[in-house]
Nucleic acid binder design. Structure first.
Lengths: 181, 181
DNA sequence: AGGTACATGTAAGCTGTTACATGATTTT
DNA sequence: AAAATCATGTAACAGCTTACATGTACCT
């Protein structure tokens, strides 16, 4: 999925500015799909406009740049549909956390504990946020599905780490304990 | 994590060629951390060599290019340790599958079913592979931890999709059914 | 006969990130 | 008083992917 298609996708949910598209990828269900920054969004929107896949309406504002609200054209909507028909690429992950866990034996037990605690805090915050979002009865089926999916994964991660962290820390502590006992 | 640090990480597990490093990121526990291609590995290895973070031994082979086996230097090992101490970046995901699920209502029920079935097949294959790997009693703690973590996540995904796919397909089918009944 | 595994490397192109530029209003 | 929110955009840089280049050996 390139940035252009991602923007097209958000615009099916209603007209939006570049700023609002960015927010959709931070908070909403799109946040679980992938991240994008302004540096990708604004050039993508400009290109979509050139290709007439979106139109723009400019609202003058005082004290800040004009707000540009983009709308899908029917060509844009069709292009999204085409993109959806293309073969689905495998999910991609990049986990700095797992990389560190791979070298748990090279870390001090305290440094390891801090990393794991930090990770648990992030996961628990995400879980709390998603549980609140789950209460929304008016959300469309796709949003409910994606929020539930993300919640299931975060819970599985948190549960697994909680249940198995001592294996990892244990591998580091074991020699000290053997001496003490 | 840049490619250089990733290579350094694999080399702590023993000397390896660029080709073998690639394989480690396909099959082994590193496969759950992230993907890398030859086009990233070979230049990274060349640069690590220039910076004297690795050494190389060249084995002449007939009918194929010389095999270059890289080894960590102590400077390389120290640099990895430093990298491990730096703040952990948040995990990054890119899910083409979830993007499609977001637009389930724009897809035909049959196309949706195919996408979900394909996804389940990939997940079930990954789960089967990881269950086999879990039988290895001699694997280090970190590998066991990471394989178990990946297994827990894949199971959570598969279970969630199996339990909730009808919500998504239902949203698409409902109008037809209402007429039929 | 064709595909996969082995084995390394370069170059071009595409994508994405980060920093810079600008500045008011609202919240903590 | 500082930080966050609102709001857009460019330019430079870094990184990654893909294609190209080359060729043997084994398995189906």
């Amino acid at each position: 999925m390139d940035t252009k298609t991602l923007c097209l996708g958000v615009l099916t949910q209603g007209d939006a500015s570049g700023y609002e598209i960015k927010k959709a990828f931070e908070d909403g269900p799109f946040g679980h799909i992938q991240e994008i920054g302004f540096g990708s969004i604004y050039p993508a929107l400009a290109q979509l406009l050139r290709e007439e896949l979106v139109t723009v309406t400019q609202y003058t504002q005082e004290g800040r740049p004009d707000k540009k609200i983009y709308s899908l054209t029917s060509a844009g909507r069709l292009l999204l549909l085409d993109a959806l028909d293309e073969p689905t690429e495998p999910d991609k992950v990049r986990s700095d956390f797992l990389f560190r866990m791979m070298f748990a034996h090279l870390l001090s037990p305290s440094a390891l504990e801090v990393m794991i605690d930090d990770r648990m805090a992030v996961l628990n915050a995400a879980i709390a946020g998603l549980q609140q979002a789950a209460d929304d009865q008016f959300a469309p089926a796709s949003e409910t599905f994606i929020n539930g999916y993300a919640l299931a994964i975060y819970r599985a991660m948190a549960d697994y780490i909680e249940d198995n962290r001592y294996q990892l820390v244990g591998a580091s502590l074991m020699p000290e304990r053997a001496v003490a006992e």
